[in-house]
């Protein structure tokens, strides 16, 4: 992909559009997959914020949704199953000037990567985690995921799942996330707004996106969500109200809320880290230690 940046002046030749954030190849998702909408929203969100491709790194794990970094013109890492948040934390610490977006799925983010989900939220690492939640394992051809509803029949639960699902919204609030939101991939305009808010938030942002799997999940479909989703903004929800956020997050039935549940300010990990106070990104600093520094160390060993 060409970068439309005038190197000599260091300024963009023109304001970038979502098109400029298109990757070198088209997605290989199933036609009608909810992930197309998420990709579209991320590209729009980057363009609308006036960001340049090199200022962004999209990091994913493994699964349908995790193929996303290949479809967007930014820096990217397509890491191991469940490990995107851990890699992303390291990348953010290595270059805290970059905007980090983690694109993941319900299995990758809440299942195999569940441990990192807890700790990345509590550390308030300044990144945006976009979870394409389709409540199913798609790439492995249809088994239950951590967000599958009770009773769901899949290849691994032919008689219906007996397990209750994880609630990503309440979980991330309890884990200490400072921005917790939900979007629906059938409403790209709203989803883009939520992603922009998440990216602009200083700290760990979780955006759980209903991104229906049209091939393997016949329960949680576009018609299922279309009639249920309701924007919190329209309800006059106060996203600084922790208790109200928890209450709204527990609602699952005829009404399912989207929008920003909770947003609060707290110091970020890179902000708290003394090593990053000055000197620019760690990854670009010169290496080695001075004679003065090493002499001090050796004297203490004697």
């Amino acid at each position: 992909m060409t970068t439309v940046v005038d190197i000599a002046s260091g300024k963009p030749a023109r304001k970038l559009t979502a098109r400029d954030f298109r990757g070198p190849v088209n997605p290989d998702w199933c036609p009608g997959c909810g992930d197309f909408g998420v990709l579209n929203s991320i590209q729009r969100a980057c363009a609308e914020q006036g960001l340049q491709p090199h200022e962004i790194m999209v990091i994913s794990g493994i699964g349908c949704s995790s193929n996303l970094p290949g479809y967007v013109n930014t820096y990217g890492m397509h890491t191991l199953h469940g490990r995107a948040l851990a890699v992303a934390t390291g990348a953010k610490m290595g270059n805290h000037e970059m905007n980090i977006i983690v694109t993941t799925g319900d299995g990758d983010g809440y299942g195999i990567g569940g441990n990192h989900f807890v700790h990345t939220a509590r550390r308030n690492v300044d990144l945006t985690m976009v979870v394409m939640n389709n409540q199913i394992y798609g790439l492995t051809t249809g088994q239950i995921s951590p967000t599958s509803t009770e009773g769901m029949k899949t290849k691994s639960t032919p008689f219906g799942s007996v397990e209750p699902p994880v609630n990503p919204i309440t979980s991330s609030i309890m884990n200490g996330a400072t921005f917790v939101a939900r979007a629906y991939s059938g409403d790209i305009r709203h989803m883009t707004e939520v992603i922009i808010k998440g990216m602009q938030h200083k700290g760990f942002s979780l955006i759980d996106v209903f991104s229906p799997c049209v091939t393997f999940n016949k329960d949680n479909t576009h018609p299922f969500f279309k009639t249920r989703v309701k924007k919190l903004e329209e309800e006059g929800h106060d996203s600084s109200d922790w208790k109200a956020a928890c209450e709204k997050a527990m609602v699952w039935g005829d009404v399912i809320y989207t929008g920003v549940f909770l947003q609060r300010e707290a110091p970020t990990l890179d902000g708290l880290e003394p090593v990053l106070r000055e000197g620019g990104p760690l990854g670009f600093r010169s290496l080695g230690i001075t004679k003065e520094q090493s002499d001090k160390i050796i004297v203490r060993m004697m």
Partner: peptide, 10 residues
């Protein structure tokens, strides 16, 4: 994985 993420940035 975190170490790898940091290493990737230089």
């Amino acid at each position: 994985n975190m170490t790898i993420g940091a290493a990737h940035t230089g």
